[in-house]
């Protein structure tokens, strides 16, 4: 039994990761800014056209000092796209959004002869082609989880397929770059092909999902045929439509 679940074109929402430079200031800020200037003078245009995230985790400053720091950075043409590790109370309107869940990447090298103090801890590949070729590389890895995914837990595996030997609870989510296999009930959210893989599929022993998505095409359980609920089902993408069928 195959059923087209949608005709209308849905809005495509995709995840994409970018590399950003992370600046982690330390106290006293004046000294840190002097060292930053030093770095900038040795490597002109270092921060130009680069996304920069400000990491203020464990930095004992208040709202006023943070605002001041922003002004100081703006004077130096450092544009901050996001703040990591700030208390919500420190963020006032007009500041960039809070960011979390960043993953460390290879340390950045500043193109310059002298060794540089480790101001720029993290993350920007100088070689853009290299980064792109990594993205295009076919996904072949897989992650196997031998226990149920509990409510509130997220399994995020952009590198490939995710197999869960157990159920995915209501309020849990699984995001995979490849396909998702659930040997149990799928009650939470499943998003397959999250980095743009339209050939990926979702399989489950019992479909009770809150939401499924393949390659950015989303579908809620209400939009699905009631005949599929509680059944072993596979879901795949045909053009811009999520298709679903029971499997034996």
């Amino acid at each position: 039994m195959t059923k087209v679940l949608t005709d209308a074109r849905s809005i495509r929402i995709k995840g994409r990761s970018f590399l950003a430079l992370v600046l982690s200031p330390d106290l006293p800020l004046d000294d840190w800014l002097v060292r930053l200037d030093d770095l900038a003078s040795r490597s002109a245009g270092f921060f130009l056209d680069r996304p920069v995230v400000l990491d203020v985790t464990d930095l004992a400053i208040d709202k006023v000092q943070l605002k001041d720091l922003f002004e100081q950075l703006a004077e130096r043409n450092v544009r901050i796209m996001g703040i990591e590790g700030a208390r919500p109370s420190m963020l006032v309107p007009g500041m960039p959004p809070a960011m979390k869940g960043g993953k460390p990447a290879a340390d950045i090298e500043v193109k310059e002869r002298e060794p540089v103090a480790a101001e720029a801890e993290g993350v920007l590949s100088e070689d853009a082609d290299h980064a792109e070729s990594q993205q295009i590389r076919p996904v072949t890895q897989s992650l196997v989880i031998n226990e149920p995914v509990r409510s509130g837990q997220s399994v995020i595996f952009p590198e490939g397929d995710v197999t869960i030997v157990g159920s995915v609870a209501s309020g849990a989510e699984v995001i995979a770059g490849g396909s998702i296999h659930v040997y149990g009930a799928l009650r939470g959210r499943a998003m397959a092909g999250s980095i743009g893989n339209s050939a990926s599929r979702i399989f489950c022993r019992k479909l009770e999902a809150e939401l499924v998505a393949i390659d950015g095409i989303y579908k809620m359980i209400e939009d699905m045929s009631p005949a599929l609920r509680g059944q072993p089902v596979q879901l795949w993408l045909d053009g811009d439509s999520i298709m679903a069928a029971t499997i034996i």
Partner: peptide, 12 residues
């Protein structure tokens, strides 16, 4: 039941 599921996740 859902809250308990969440707690079990935290216990682990």
């Amino acid at each position: 039941v859902r809250d308990s599921d969440r707690i079990i996740g935290l216990l682990d």
